[in-house]
Structure formats: structure tokens, C-alpha cells
Write a protein that binds this DNA or RNA. Structure first.
Lengths: 125, 125
DNA sequence: CAAGTATTTAAAAAATTTTTGAAATATTTA
DNA sequence: TAAATATTTCAAAAATTTTTTAAATACTTG
């Protein structure tokens, strides 16, 4: 009949474990929604190798856009697009120096770059 | 004239810093290409809030697909799509239990989830 | 073995992201 | 002030990712 919700069944072996933790609904309710959103946002900002490369380069040395575009091998506008994403994500910031814009890591950007090594599968423990 | 490469100019203030580090070319050459590729890959796998949510849920409790799809509120096939991405990224693995597939974090997956808190801007130091 | 359940796969459609190329800005220099 | 330089912005095109729907698998149970 229409509108009948089919009850879903958790396999026995798993249900035991779930009950020990206060039930499925509770596990769901206790997920840290804000943290999840933030993590996904940062991950998304860095989901492109060129943007990650920019971050690595800036970790070593602040640079103007004409340098950064050499680093990733791209046009100005492409580089600018990536930089604006990184900026919107709060990872880099820029200041004008004459005709140039000098980009560098924000404290937040630095704190993240610091943990990059965690993302090498070699680290599997 | 055609084919003339325009030499790019690094602003004075920056060039001093760059020379101290052995020059621009060297900075570029020493970027850890493999690490950059790996970082971007992991970030890319987790660039979606639903996938991050799955990881958080699995950190707490191994689950079958019918549970995970409730967690993220989606259809089977959508959930399956995300799971296959996570699997391809080496973050989760699955084992059959009768009619069910039970998903859980790989050691690599666990090692990464462990560092999620780093990705909250509140952590800015 | 037929029917039911859980899940995956495949293909097409929809949505999002990235790239490109041209034009707009702002600053410096002649 | 005109010309040159560095960079951004915008809109269209191209590429990629995600969603949807339907069909295919594989296991379990009657």
C-alpha cells in the first residue's frame, strides 16, 4: 500500500554493538554536524593538486601571482581562480606590493599544511 | 616578435628572500610531488560532506549500507557511489555478512579521521 | 527452485567545477 | 597623461562529478 514505510533491519551481529552504544538513532544524533561541514569544506578547497601545490610552495616562501603561476604551470586567470578559492577557504591571504599581489599562508593555512604528512598512505599504522 | 619569451620579474623584496633559499627554480624543484599528489587525492575523496559524514559514523561503529544510507539520508545507489569512492581512496573496506555488506574504516582511514579536528578554523593559532 | 532482501552497476541526466580568452582595474613608469 | 605591467573578473565552453533510475548480482529463506 502507498505510504507504508518499510522498516529496515540491522543485522544481529551489528545490532548488539549498536545497542551497547545507546542505539542507532543516538549514534546519528551525536555526529558533530558542524565539524563535518568544516572538514568537508577544507578538504574541498584542497581537492585539487594545483591548489595543494600552491600551499606547499607558500609554506616555503611567500610569492606573487606571476611566481605561483610558474609553480603550477598555468595562465594568470587560472592561477587567480585557484587563489580565490584558497582565499575563500581562509587558507591564504594577499597584500598588494606596488603592482604585485603577494600571497602567503594564513595562520589557519599554516596549521593545516603542518599536518599534510598524515595524508600519505605510507603512514598507515 | 613571435616566440619571444617574456622574462618574468620577481619583486625586489621577495627576490631577496628567494635567493636566500637557493633561488626560485630550486624552490620549485624541491616541492614533494608525490606527497602533493597523495594529499590532493585524499582531500578529493573527502571533499563531499556526505562522505565525511560516513567516515565519522564508521569511526563510531561499523555499519551495513542500509544503515549508512540512513546516516546520510540517501538512496542505496547514491550511498553505494560514495562508498565506492571511499573504498577506492583506501579509507574504508567492506566484508560480506550474509546478505549484508559491512563497511568499516581501514587503518589508513582511521589514521586520517584521527586528525580531523585540525580542520576546524577555531583551531587557528 | 522461486521469491525476497541487500547491494552494486550502468547509462543517462543534472549539477558543479574548471578552463579559457577577452575585457576591466589598479598601479607604476615614461 | 599615455603606455606598460600585474592581476582580477566575467561569461562561455569544456570537463568532471554527482544524482537518478532501472536492471543486474548474490545470498537467504520458504
Amino acid at each position: 500500500m502507498a505510504g507504508v514505510k518499510k522498516r529496515f533491519v540491522i543485522p544481529e551481529e551489528i545490532r548488539v554493538e549498536v545497542e551497547e552504544k545507546g542505539g542507532f538513532e543516538r549514534i546519528i544524533k551525536e555526529l558533530p554536524r558542524d565539524e563535518i561541514r568544516m572538514v568537508a569544506k577544507v578538504m574541498n578547497t584542497l581537492s585539487d593538486p594545483q591548489r595543494v601545490k600552491i600551499l606547499y610552495a607558500l609554506k616555503r616562501q611567500r610569492m606573487c601571482v606571476c611566481m605561483l603561476r610558474k609553480v603550477i604551470g598555468s595562465s594568470y586567470s587560472r592561477c587567480s581562480y585557484h587563489l580565490s578559492k584558497l582565499k575563500k577557504g581562509g587558507l591564504v591571504h594577499s597584500e598588494r606590493l606596488g603592482n604585485y599581489f603577494i600571497y602567503s599562508l594564513t595562520p589557519f593555512g599554516k596549521s593545516i599544511v603542518k599536518h599534510f604528512k598524515k595524508y600519505r598512505p605510507e603512514v598507515r599504522t
